[in-house]
Design a protein around this nucleic acid. Structure first.
Length: 545
RNA sequence: GCGCCUGUGGCCCAACGGAUAAGGCACCAGCCUCCGGAGCUGGUGAUGCAGGUUCAAUUCCUGCCAGGCGCACCA
């Protein structure tokens, strides 16, 4: 019951508008929000402010009139016991104050149903493909990939929680120029190990791991032609290990090599040609992407007959749709942002709506140590790797930190702060709240006999805690709309803070039995929400620390 | 030159167009005979500049200033 109070209140306002002969505004979008401050009730609407111009009346006057109608509607509907008061405040906001019973009922729902109570069926089973990381198998994953992995995995978790059917995919660049260079790099190192004099080009892979691969190639007697594949396979195993330790699991690894073999690229070309979207100029084959708003047309087959990277990519994205996905989410680094328009043009060329592709540009993370940026240089193979971050701060802190800022913002990641086990470190702040709750629950010998009387929770801090818990669903909604999971980290810190404040002022144990039981139920509810949120982030929920 | 991201107290950073701009660090003053002090309470202190849209702008638009990144028949 009253699973979605926001919707009910929205309908209520709409009915009131009609009752006030303001039918023509009833179709208007009515925002019912959590107020910015607890003093402004439990829900608020700015509809009177919005209508004031058209109605040529002051917002306060409109609000007062509308509030009266709303109160009448409330008396006529079943919401009487739910809404305590409707007040016009500020410039003309209409604020709803709910009865505590509503909050007790909601808390009860969470305790009884657990995590299920927090789910929403917004996705309705829609199939969505989240493609992320997709790093070339030519070296260990960098911190840039790490952030993409954290964001992509967390976003996928949230979408799944909201009833989308999600597949996590890694596009594997397992052939082409980079793999050739990788193979030649290994070949040269192998010759070097055999005592030959070599000259190692600057654009070859410089890292020491190339020697390791060369040694294995020696031992296994790999032919020069197979070296690229061998090395890529070797590195792919390393990457998979790094991702596994980062708790990121892909459902599918999509091989570019197999895509090339499948004939799908040629088929995509044919279809584009039929649509008149290919042209030959200067000895090259171009995709007329300007037809769909791109700045300029793009080459897909170079004048030397070889394909550009765009060619398989067009076929790849078309294949995503052919596999039944109707929403594609791609996470790319900022260096790829110029690539968005041409890929979007390609999906439009095949008749898909532009919105079917969402590209999330994951800004870079700079690693700091004691406030000093740590220098990176991919050229020498000396970039900071995911592995190093994991070894130093662990998966929990790493995931939380990578998710702590808006994805479109640069992120400063201080290794020393992430290692600290103190209040400076938000991961511990949140996990500590969870562990504290578990600790209390542990010290209760007998639990759960008899139903808790939640109406005993009358303290401000107790009600604040319930209200905060109920915001969780709205937070996930924002994550969906903004396609950015970072709000979850902000929310979990707020919920933890609300809990710590409650804990400081009120004792759970040693109260009158009925009150203790009610407070145990309360913190059990907090535990469910905290645990759910941490789980969506991919961060563990320790029972003790 | 074009495009993208970012400018909020000494430092880091929040606010799906709303009400008195939220937290944290640092600094100052407090709180454990009591469920975990990895916690809590109080204090000082902020929206780069100039216009515009709006009942309302940190948020949207334009211009400028500053920082980061990208602009291939590379991947």
């Amino acid at each position: 019951m009253h699973k979605n109070i926001q919707e009910e209140l929205t309908a209520l306002v709409r009915r009131s508008l009609k009752a006030g002969k303001m039918d023509k505004f009833a179709g208007e979008e009515i925002a019912l929000d959590f107020p910015t401050d607890e003093r402004f009730g439990d829900f608020t609407t700015n509809i009177a402010l919005k209508l004031s111009k058209e109605l040529k009346s002051s917002p306060r006057q409109i609000a007062l009139g509308l509030a009266e109608l709303i109160e009448k509607e409330i008396r006529n509907s079943g919401l009487n016991g739910l809404i305590a008061q409707v007040k016009v405040e500020g410039a003309g906001f209409i604020n709803f104050y709910l009865n505590a019973d509503y909050f007790y009922a909601q808390l009860d729902r969470i305790i009884s149903a657990g995590r299920e109570a927090l789910k929403q069926d917004l996705g309705k089973g829609r199939k969505v493909l989240v493609e992320f990381v997709s790093a070339n198998p030519t070296g260990s994953l960098s911190v840039a990939h790490a952030r993409q992995a954290a964001v992509g995995d967390c976003l996928a978790n949230i979408l799944e929680f909201l009833d989308f059917k999600v597949q996590r995919e890694y596009y594997l660049n397992d052939e082409g120029n980079q793999i050739n260079i990788l193979g030649r790099s290994v070949q040269l190192r192998r010759e070097e190990l055999e005592g030959k004099r070599i000259e190692f080009p600057e654009n070859y892979y410089q890292g020491d791991y190339i020697y390791d691969i060369a040694r294995h190639a020696q031992k296994e007697n790999i032919g020069e032609e197979q070296l690229g594949d061998f090395a890529a396979g070797y590195i792919l195993k390393i990457i998979k290990g790094e991702l596994a330790d980062f708790k990121v699991n892909f459902d599918n690894w999509y091989s570019q090599k197999e895509l090339a073999k499948s004939g799908k690229v040629e088929r995509a070309f044919e279809q584009l040609r039929e649509k008149g979207l290919l042209s030959e100029r200067d000895g090259a084959l171009w995709f007329n992407s300007t037809a769909f708003g791109d700045d300029k047309d793009r080459v897909i087959v170079k004048s030397d007959g070889s394909q550009t990277y765009l060619a398989p990519d067009i076929a790849y994205h078309q294949d995503k749709f052919n596999r039944g996905f109707d929403w594609l989410i791609n996470l790319w680094g900022p260096d790829h942002h110029g690539y968005i328009n041409r890929i979007r043009a390609s999906i439009q060329a095949f008749g898909h709506p532009a919105e079917a592709l969402s590209v999330i540009i994951v800004q870079l993370a700079t690693i700091f140590r004691n406030g000093e940026p740590v220098q990176m240089s991919t050229r020498r193979g000396q970039y900071i790797t995911l592995r190093e971050v994991l070894d130093e701060v662990g998966s929990d802190a790493a995931r939380f930190f990578f998710l702590m800022r808006r994805t479109s913002s640069h992120l400063d990641f201080d290794l020393e702060v992430a290692k600290k086990q103190s209040s400076e470190n938000p991961v511990y702040y949140v996990q500590y709240a969870h562990a504290r709750i578990c600790s209390i629950l542990r010290s209760v010998a007998v639990q759960g006999q008899g139903k808790a009387d939640l109406s005993l929770l009358k303290e401000k801090e107790e009600l604040n805690l319930i209200k905060k818990m109920l915001e969780f669903s709205a937070v996930l909604n924002i994550c969906l709309v903004t396609r950015d999971p970072y709000m979850v980290t902000v929310y979990l810190q707020e919920l933890s803070e609300t809990f710590h404040k409650f804990y400081d002022l009120h004792r759970v144990l040693g109260q009158a039995e009925a009150l203790t039981r009610a407070r145990l139920a309360l913190i059990e509810g907090v535990k469910i929400v905290l645990s759910c949120g941490l789980d969506l982030l991919g961060v563990s929920q320790p029972e003790s620390m």
